[in-house]
């Protein structure tokens, strides 16, 4: 296990920012943390980096406690902060060089590769760069050392759509190389796109774990019938069937021919089929509670 938290809790006075979080991340997987502002996403990440002392519980990276042995834990981690503040008196290359030295890491020719990929002049002073360019510099810096764990706090903030796709592609490549990626986000589509598992936080508590492979296998199906059908004998792979007279709503998992055979027996006037997304699951916890992001 690369990353493990056990009952990780953080209180700020009377406020509970994180409540008994149990989380595990293995090498080669991409895990997303979803939740609105104040749900505890950043607190969880900051506890993993050793920025905060847990009120109770513990977190460890590669067996190193994230608070008491934080330095050794951080040797395995690259981190992209949510609020990006850099040393404005440096150039991009100076920043990368400085942070690499702190890590005892020598930038290799991968730096040039990333520079081409991100299409950025790293010789420019950071003070003259836009926020998107600064984020690219920091992304380069965290992708360079190929640490076993990459933690990103809302990484696609301020990135244009092309760059966002590049970044997500890089994260998938990192996972294919065996690195684990843990990132928080507000954007459901990007989490759906790249994550293997997703944790949904609500007011500091982990309220749902979603395996994305399982979710991607499920289709949401809406059928409009030309006339209502009273007794429906649905196949085994159909779940959450709702019969509203001439409208059928259900979820389906498994091979399509079986479903299509069943539908062929019904007076189908219209059919809509789409992959299940995180939206419904997320809204179950947040919009219904009025805390949607």
């Amino acid at each position: 296990m690369l990353l493990r938290t056990e009952q990780l809790t953080k209180h700020y006075g009377a406020i509970t920012a994180l409540d008994h979080l149990d989380l595990e991340v293995v090498p080669g997987e991409i895990v997303g943390i979803l939740g609105p502002n104040g749900s505890g996403k950043s607190t969880a990440l900051r506890l993993l980096l050793g920025f905060l002392r847990p009120t109770s519980g513990r977190a460890s990276i590669n067996g190193h406690d994230c608070w008491s042995d934080s330095v050794n834990a951080r040797r395995f981690v690259s981190y992209l902060p949510g609020e990006l503040r850099l040393y404005e008196n440096m150039t991009g290359v100076q920043l990368i060089d400085f942070l690499s030295r702190l890590r005892n890491y020598k930038p290799t020719d991968r730096l040039q590769k990333l520079q081409r990929l991100f299409d950025i002049d790293i010789e420019r002073p950071l003070a003259q760069m836009s926020s998107g360019m600064k984020r690219k510099i920091t992304l380069m810096q965290i992708l360079l050392p190929e640490t076993p764990l990459v933690i990103l706090d809302e990484p696609t903030n301020t990135l244009d759509p092309n760059m966002r796709d590049h970044l997500l592609g890089q994260l998938v490549e990192s996972a294919q190389r065996g690195q684990a990626v843990l990132f928080s986000s507000h954007v459901l589509t990007e989490v759906e796109h790249v994550c293997d598992r997703v944790a949904i936080l609500q007011q500091g508590r982990l309220v749902h774990w979603q395996n994305m492979r399982e979710l991607r296998e499920v289709r949401r199906v809406r059928v409009t019938l030309s006339q209502p059908v009273a007794n429906l004998a649905a196949p085994e792979n159909v779940a959450a069937l709702e019969n509203h007279g001439s409208d059928l709503h259900f979820q389906h998992r498994g091979p399509l021919p079986e479903l299509l055979q069943w539908l062929a027996q019904l007076p189908v006037a219209d059919l809509k089929m789409e992959p299940m997304g995180l939206s419904e699951i997320y809204q179950k916890y947040h919009r219904l509670n009025g805390t949607s992001s």
Binding site: R74, V77, L84, Y87
Partner: peptide, 14 residues
């Protein structure tokens, strides 16, 4: 205050 301490302490330094 500037927010750079986070960047610094994200590296493996005590």
């Amino acid at each position: 205050d500037r927010g750079t301490m986070e960047l610094l302490l994200a590296q493996p330094i005590r």
